[in-house]
């Protein structure tokens, strides 16, 4: 690890001001320290925000929940309001990482974690995300875990978070404070950026920005599911994951929200696929049509071609289960 200086932030203002001058914010550190050990990233100054008062979970006036950025993944998954009203989020959190890591990882940090693309992690290889302009070896290389949607000729890395996928389906908002002390909120659908020709820029955070909270809207009606398909039964990143909220009334789909992990550089949402379901009676055939819409622009890279049928089957299984049709595909 390269040498760095370390300070503990006494206030959010101190943290954002130092971050505006190039300091790297550390919270749980479970991803950042991993990257620092491998020198994928080498900050000169690290500012520790762990002791700031940002670990509260509180009801919002409209009946939603405000999750402080330092609420640990394990505490969030254990909160009874999350377990009861936002099951998709509790299940996504519990599907991620290990018990030890969830005890450390924070809500804000989880949103900012970096891809697990092998080439991004290997400093002897070119990578446009790590070293802009150096090239992408995943394209034409080993790309079994890579994106089938949203990638570019410069980067096909996937976003690794489970939590963020559930937050997309729940249409959460992210509260951000800047170095001037101003707070703004960004819808999670607007938070992440597609790689295009700047894959090193992954979200809308600017230097000096600190995520202070994630705000959930009031609970919505319907069945909530999170299913994660991976190479082993636990403690592995998603090959494909589906977050679904499905509200069926009078034999028809009244409302539906879907988000996908493991298949794109950002937590993926496709409102076209959702609209196709609205107002129609649930059936496996209908869900297959929605999957075809979702995957219409998808592109396999060779080793990850399997993600197309896997995504389709997982979506059909999840929606069939949520609609009470049984989850067998």
């Amino acid at each position: 690890m390269k040498p760095f200086t370390y300070t503990r932030a006494e206030s959010t203002g101190a943290a954002t001001r130092q971050a505006a001058h190039g300091a790297t914010i550390i919270a749980g550190g479970t991803n950042l320290l991993d990257l620092m050990k491998l020198e994928v990233t080498a900050p000169e100054h690290v500012i520790d925000v762990n002791r700031l008062p940002l670990a509260e979970l509180e009801q919002t006036p409209d009946g939603g929940l405000r999750i402080g950025a330092l609420v640990r993944n394990s505490d969030l998954a254990a909160d009874m309001r999350i377990r009861r009203d936002y099951k998709v989020l509790a299940n996504a959190l519990l599907a991620g990482a290990s018990g030890q890591l969830r005890n450390k990882a924070t809500t804000g940090g989880n949103l900012c974690q970096r891809t697990r693309c092998y080439y991004f992690y290997d400093t002897s290889m070119p990578c446009n995300k790590r070293e802009p302009g150096s090239g992408c070896q995943a394209i034409g290389g080993f790309n079994r875990i890579h994106a089938i949607l949203g990638g570019s000729e410069h980067c096909i890395a996937t976003h690794p978070s489970d939590m963020a996928v559930a937050l997309c389906a729940l249409q959460a908002e992210i509260e951000i404070e800047n170095a001037e002390g101003q707070r703004r909120t960004v819808a999670i659908g607007e938070f992440y950026r597609l790689p295009g020709d700047t894959p090193h820029i992954e979200n809308v955070l600017q230097p000096g920005d600190l995520i202070t909270a994630v705000v959930l809207p009031p609970p919505v009606a319907g069945e909530q599911r999170y299913r994660k398909v991976r190479d082993r039964a636990s403690f592995a990143f998603a090959l494909v994951s589906v977050a679904a909220i499905l509200d069926c009334r009078d034999g028809k789909i009244a409302d539906c929200s879907l988000a996908f992990g493991g298949i794109a550089p950002i937590p993926w949402r496709d409102t076209g696929a959702e609209h196709h379901l609205h107002g129609k009676p649930p059936s496996r055939e209908l869900f297959a049509e929605a999957a075809e819409i979702l995957l219409g622009d998808s592109r396999g890279q060779g080793s990850n071609d399997f993600k197309r049928p896997l995504t389709k089957r997982t979506l059909i299984a999840v929606l069939s289960d949520a609609a009470g049709l049984g989850d067998a595909t």
Binding site: I26, Q100, K104
Partner: peptide, 11 residues
């Protein structure tokens, strides 16, 4: 329980 390898002593 946490992983002692993935956290800094100074934290």
């Amino acid at each position: 329980r946490i992983n002692a390898c993935l956290t800094l002593a100074c934290m």
